[in-house]
Simulated assay, not measured.
Amino acid sequence: MSEQMPRDLGSRDPTSRDHAMSVAAISSGRIESDENIWTRRLVLFLRVMAVVSMMQGLYHWAQVTGFVGTEDDAFEVQTMGWQTATIYFAVIELVSAVGLWLATPWGAVVWLTTVVSMAVIELMFPTIYGGNLLIVGVQAAFLAGYLALAWMAARERPP
Rank of each mutant, 00 (worst) to 15 (best):
Y88P: 01
V48M: 09
V91S: 07
T15V: 14
W101V: 00
P105A: 09
T65W: 12
T86Y: 01
T127F: 08
V64Y: 08
S53M: 09
F142Y: 13
M54D: 02
Y146Q: 06
L100F: 03
S117N: 06
G10H: 06
I87D: 04
T86A: 03
L147Y: 10
E156P: 08
A108G: 12
E71I: 09
P105W: 11
I128H: 00
T114Y: 02
T113P: 02
S27Q: 09
I26K: 11
T15W: 15
L133E: 06
Q63W: 00
M118P: 00
F125P: 01
L102T: 05
G99P: 04
V48E: 04
D8C: 14
M80K: 13
E156T: 04
T84I: 15
A153Q: 01
W106T: 02
Q139W: 00
A144P: 02
V120T: 11
S117T: 03
S22D: 12
W106L: 09
Q83F: 04
V91M: 09
L9Q: 15
A150I: 01
N36H: 07
P6N: 15
P158L: 14
M124W: 10
A24D: 10
L44D: 10
P158N: 15
F75R: 07
S11T: 14
R12F: 13
G29A: 12
R47H: 10
Y129K: 06
A20W: 08
V95F: 09
S53L: 05
A20N: 11
A90N: 03
V116T: 13
P105T: 08
T84N: 11
A85W: 05
R155F: 02
F45N: 01
Q56G: 11
V43P: 00
Q139G: 02
P14Q: 07
W82G: 01
V95A: 11
R41F: 00
G137N: 02
F75L: 12
E122L: 00
A74Y: 03
T15C: 13
L143K: 05
T84E: 13
A90T: 00
Y88N: 08
Q78S: 12
V116P: 06
F89C: 02
V48R: 06
E156Y: 05
R12C: 12
D13I: 09
R157C: 05
A25V: 11
T70D: 09
S96K: 02
L44N: 08
R12K: 14
S11W: 15
F67E: 08
V51I: 10
R41Y: 01
L143A: 13
L44V: 10
